[in-house]
Design a protein around this nucleic acid. Structure first.
Length: 115
DNA sequence: GCATTGACGAAGG
DNA sequence: CCCTTCGCCAATG
């Protein structure tokens, strides 16, 4: 895989933001995409996470879910159960592959980082 | 360069 | 929340 300078910056931006997510909080791909400025390309955020494997420092991709709070990316982890396990370790309740109280735990960089 | 794919999002049902 | 359709954009074949 070889990405252009443009996407390289995109990758770094995504990784950086994801690492800033506080414990016990979650955010969505769209929120990250919006904060970066790529806006509509929320899919690219998820795709960037796909490249976060083996990246140092570790990228807490388990704190990134889709807009409904669903653990859509669990299948891309080392093991499908790893994501939920990590979330529950941070006191985040997960039920039916979905984050409980997602609206309360939601962490939007575009808002939280400005405060 | 076109076609397909995808860890998404919004809107309508 | 689930389903479908459409839009989005970089990667991949």
């Amino acid at each position: 895989m070889q990405y252009t300078p443009k996407t390289k910056d995109f990758f770094q931006n995504v990784f950086d933001i994801v690492r800033l997510i506080p414990k016990g909080r979650v955010t969505s791909y769209g929120a990250i995409a919006k904060y970066i400025g790529t806006g509509g390309s929320s899919r690219m955020v998820g795709w960037a996470m796909n490249a976060s494997h083996g990246v140092k420092p570790k990228v807490p991709a388990h704190r990134v879910v889709n807009r409904n709070g669903m653990l859509t990316g669990k299948a891309h982890f080392e093991t499908p159960t790893k994501m939920q396990a990590l979330l529950e370790k941070e006191k985040i309740k997960v039920q039916n592959e979905t984050v409980v109280d997602f609206d309360k735990l939601f962490w939007d960089p575009a808002i939280e980082l400005v405060l």
